[in-house]
């Protein structure tokens, strides 16, 4: 057992959880202002592509990150305009955005990056260097957990607390709460409902785009077709499992990241002499979310004005 559960596994879990936390906290802001956001997956995917393209063309991961966040925001803007101005159903708009991102990223990948590969040029980008922790690296636990982690991961660990403070300790956070729970009353009280809804949705684009950037600029170094591989939906599950609370969502994302890391570690290895099917581990986040939805883990209460 000890060779399966060690600090390295936890380090890998943190890496797996990073894009999940970022996207889940992005989606959280969108849902907190009442806009259902199943388009996280598309924003991650398109963000990953933009990150790869930006970094490939300029050689700078910072430009790649900016492109990823820009593209995430653009897709989010489309969702905001569709749901707020055109009054489109939130689910339909989300489905369309996921399809658009899948189609466009694959199309552009084959048009721009594949020909470069065929011409013998590299499609591997310059990645962000791992963060050096200075003196902390000498402490055994920090060393094992945070060694070779990117700044994305450290940021993802701090972000939930920042978001919690923002939501519960500021006037703005209270307004968000009001919009998500009863937009009509909020408007009567003079809260700028539409502006907050736009902000919340755009916020989801920033962080889902950043999650996509992580995949390319910190994890793998290159874009691959459909590389988001369902992470947007796991993030959505984490957000619900965490009951629309920043710490809950981040905690759930960490847990789901741990299952993924464990699954990769376990490939073929027996635990206590039993061969665990890896499919079961991969299924676990979704299964747990369904169990949570059943109300077995306490009452679920989404923002009451969600979807209107």
């Amino acid at each position: 057992m000890s060779d399966i559960f060690d600090a390295q596994l936890v380090g890998a879990a943190l890496r797996q959880a990073t894009p999940l936390i970022l996207a889940a906290l992005g989606g959280l802001m969108s849902e907190r202002v009442g806009v259902i956001n199943i388009g996280l997956e598309g924003k991650i995917l398109m963000g990953a592509f933009a990150a790869a393209l930006g970094a490939l063309l300029t050689g700078s991961p910072l430009v790649g990150l900016a492109c990823a966040m820009g593209v995430g925001v653009t897709l989010a803007l489309l969702h905001a305009v569709a749901t707020q101005e055109w009054r489109t159903d939130h689910i339909v708009s989300g489905v369309a955005i996921n399809l658009l991102a899948l189609g466009l990223s694959t199309y552009l990948f084959r048009q721009i990056i594949v020909p470069r590969e065929e011409a013998g040029e590299t499609s591997v980008v310059t990645m962000f260097a791992p963060v050096s922790l200075g003196g902390l690296e000498n402490l055994p636990i920090f060393n094992a957990l945070l060694k070779d982690q990117s700044w994305f991961t450290l940021f993802a660990l701090v972000l939930p607390f920042m978001l919690l403070t923002l939501l519960t300790r500021t006037r703005w956070g209270l307004q968000v709460y009001a919009v998500g729970n009863d937009s009509v009353k909020a408007r009567t009280m003079g809260v700028p409902v539409k502006r907050l809804r736009y902000l919340g949705v755009l916020w989801s684009g920033v962080f889902a785009g950043m999650a996509g950037a992580f995949l390319v600029l910190a994890a793998t170094g290159q874009f691959r077709e459909n590389m988001s591989a369902g992470r947007g939906f796991i993030a959505l599950a984490a957000l619900i499992f965490g009951r629309w609370h920043p710490l809950g969502a981040a905690g759930a994302a960490l847990g789901f990241g741990f299952f993924e890391a464990l699954q990769m570690r376990l490939q073929g290895q027996p635990v206590f002499g039993v061969q665990l099917p890896t499919d079961l581990l991969l299924m676990l986040p979704y299964l747990l979310t369904v169990i949570a939805l059943m109300g077995l883990l306490g009452k679920m209460k989404p923002p009451s004005d969600l979807g209107n």
Binding site: I36, I38, I91, G230, F233, L236, A237, I240, M283, Y286, L287, T289, V290, L293
Partner: peptide, 10 residues
Amino acid sequence: VISTIMFNYI
């Protein structure tokens, strides 16, 4: 919508 997405992956 949420539960059907979960059941897709399951």
